[in-house]
Structure formats: C-alpha cells, structure tokens
Design a binder for these strands. Sequence first.
DNA 1: ATTGTGTTTAACAAAATTGTCAATAAATTT
DNA 2: AAATTTATTGACAATTTTGTTAAACACAAT
Lengths: 198, 198
Amino acid sequence: MSAKITDQDTEQLIKDTAKRVFFGEGRFNATTQEIADAAGVNRTLINYYFRSRNNLFDIVFQDAQEQEHNILEEIVFADISFKEKISRNLDAFFEQSKKYPYLEIYMVTQMNQGNCYKDKEHMNLLLDKFYLEVALEMERGNIHKMRPEQFVLNFVSLMSFPVSMRPLLQETMGFTKESYDTLLEERKDVIMNTLFIK
Amino acid sequence: MSAKITDQDTEQLIKDTAKRVFFGEGRFNATTQEIADAAGVNRTLINYYFRSRNNLFDIVFQDAQEQEHNILEEIVFADISFKEKISRNLDAFFEQSKKYPYLEIYMVTQMNQGNCYKDKEHMNLLLDKFYLEVALEMERGNIHKMRPEQFVLNFVSLMSFPVSMRPLLQETMGFTKESYDTLLEERKDVIMNTLFIK
DNA sequence: ATTGTGTTTAACAAAATTGTCAATAAATTT
DNA sequence: AAATTTATTGACAATTTTGTTAAACACAAT
C-alpha cells in the first residue's frame, strides 16, 4: 500500500548508490561493477532496470539538475528578505554538500562529455527574478554595485568552490580533515560579511 | 646541439597533447587511443615512452602540480605590494586559464581516484609567508578581518570557480560563449573590489 | 498445484581498451 | 657503408568492461 518499508525497490537503490558514488565520493568513472558492488546487487540488474550504463548516467545527471533547481527555486520564491534568502541558501547548500560535495563538478565533467543541460527556460526565469532583487539591494546600498550576474558569480563561487575542490585545497593548504571541517563551518559568516556591506 | 626545432620529440608531444585533452578540454577519461589520435601518433608510442596509461596520467598530474606551484611562487616572492601581488596573480591565472581551464578540476578528480599531492612541505612554506602578509594587510585595514586561510579561500574561489565551472554556469545562467567571455574579462575588477576595502 | 509475472542470477558473448612483441624504418655512430 | 641504436608500426594477446540470454527464483493470483 504505502512505499515499501524494506530496502527493496532495487531500481531506486541502484540510482541512490550511483548518486552516492558520483556526487558523494567523486568517483566519476566508476564501472557498473563498482556501482553494483556498492549497492550490494548483481551487476546485471543495472542493465535490467536501466538498459545501459549510459542511460543510468543520464538519468542521474538529470536528477542532479533537478536537485540544483529545487534548492534555488525554494530560495528565490520564499517570502523573506534578500539577506535572509542568501543566508538560507548558504545553509541549504552546506547541508546538501555534506552528502553530495561533488555534485557540481560531476555536472561539469558530464557536460564536457557531451551531456547537456535541460530546462534552461525555467532557470532563466528564476535568475531574472533574482537579478532584480540583487539590483534593488545595490540601490539600497547593502551590497556593492556591480552587474547582478557578477554578484551571483561571487556568491556561488564563495559558497561552492571550497566544497567542490576540497581534496585539492585541503591537501595543498595542509589541513587535516577536522581543521578543514572547521574552516567550512566558519565559512557562512565569512561569506555573508564578504557579500554584504556592514 | 640546441633543442629540436621541428615538432619532433614525440614524448613531449604526447605529454602536451594529454595536457590539452585533460586540462584544456576537460576530457578526463580519454582513452590512450583518443590521446594518440589527438597527437597524431601511433597509440603504442604511449606505451613506448610512458610504459602505461596510468604512468602517463601520473606524470601529467605531477606537471599540473608544478604549474600551480610556480604561479603561486612567483607571486609570493615578488618584491611588490600585497595588492599588486593579488592583481598579478589574477592576471597570471586568467591567462593560463585560457589554455587550461580545467586544471584544478582535473586535479580534484585525480585525487578522488587515489592520486595524491606531493611536495606539501614547500607549499606550506609559501602559504605561511603569504598568511603573514594577509594578516598585515588586515591590520592596515585594507582588507576585512578574518582568518587568513579564509581570505585565501575567498581569493581562489572568486578567481577559479567561474573558470572551472564554466560549462555548468554558462549553460544554467543562459550566457553565450561571447557574453561569458565578457563576464570573465570584467571579473578581475570585480574580484579586486570584493577583496579590498575601498 | 499451477500459472503467470516480475526479479535475480550465472554463464556467456561482444565490445572496448590496454599492453606486448617482433618486424620495419629512421637516424646516429663507427 | 655497415653497424648500432632509437623510433615507429601493425598484428596480436590479455584484460577490462559492458551487454545479452536463458534459467532459477520468489511470490501472488487463479
């Protein structure tokens, strides 16, 4: 009647595992065998449910897009102040990044292999609305004046980069796992202070 | 006597081509055949010069590290003001990013596959020196106060992210190739204004 | 019990990718 | 020019990865 209680629904299990392997662990060229092993299922079930490896990859890619979309959408249409929107977006992002730190990088690697983004129309609507708010906030003197697109770039860069590039940054900058975690926790305040004029 | 004039030196050609394919085009799991084709050489020459595919990948990875190192080193030890260092680093970065936009992402994907960063000692020396300068600049009131590590994160994030993630950002934000190029050109000023207090 | 449906499995086939090796070609040294 | 080394090639073998198929299994409906 209701959704299955047990860990059945192998199809979903495989998809979730693939997401974990890609977005969570950053193993972008995992084989079907590796994914099957990680899910604890027979490899051929991937073919049974998804026909081909490529198809699974495509489906997971689409899911990643929606995930991105949804986070943004919730923020943009919320009935809260601009600053509060940014603040909540940061919270939402850092929360999901614990589970899926490599989501953005995964999308880039996929797009470099020919996969392309869908539903640009809708995203543009969201962005245009957001740009208006950004511009208004500049008028009010709460953030520095620049093209709204540049503000968005600043925002996503400051937020995303330290998460996406963690393996590189943690190593090169000589952090331990723990000290880098601390750094990330402090990041929300740093970003707010960087984006907004005191 | 001197270095070969012609485009000989197949070994170097293969290495350069691999770099172009990886850092330049972002095709991180190119096959040996694809690399050989891109270089216009017989595939087995990759085995002849580099023994195995893995070995080539490792060597290219090391090269990427050195490249990163060198850019940073030149800046940190230059005899110029702090602001000028940041400015020149931005120039150097945006210059190399035209050729190798995916250098950083490549390193992350490699590190997620078990490859690890070498020469951390030296990098730490560079960074420690740089942190001191950052701290001093905060005292002087030229940049906002925060942990120097956070300033470095801000800096590299603002600089690197829009380049690394270009395929994703350009698509989702609805830019053309040209308009995104313009955006990147404007970025140096935006970043300087974001990092430094007027 | 049997039939039917959907799921899972192992064995196999096919395809793709890498690595080896001996033969050839080119270049250098003697 | 002959000999020697180095570079290049094609044919082949080995390996890895993917996809297919038929049989086994589970389980509900008849």
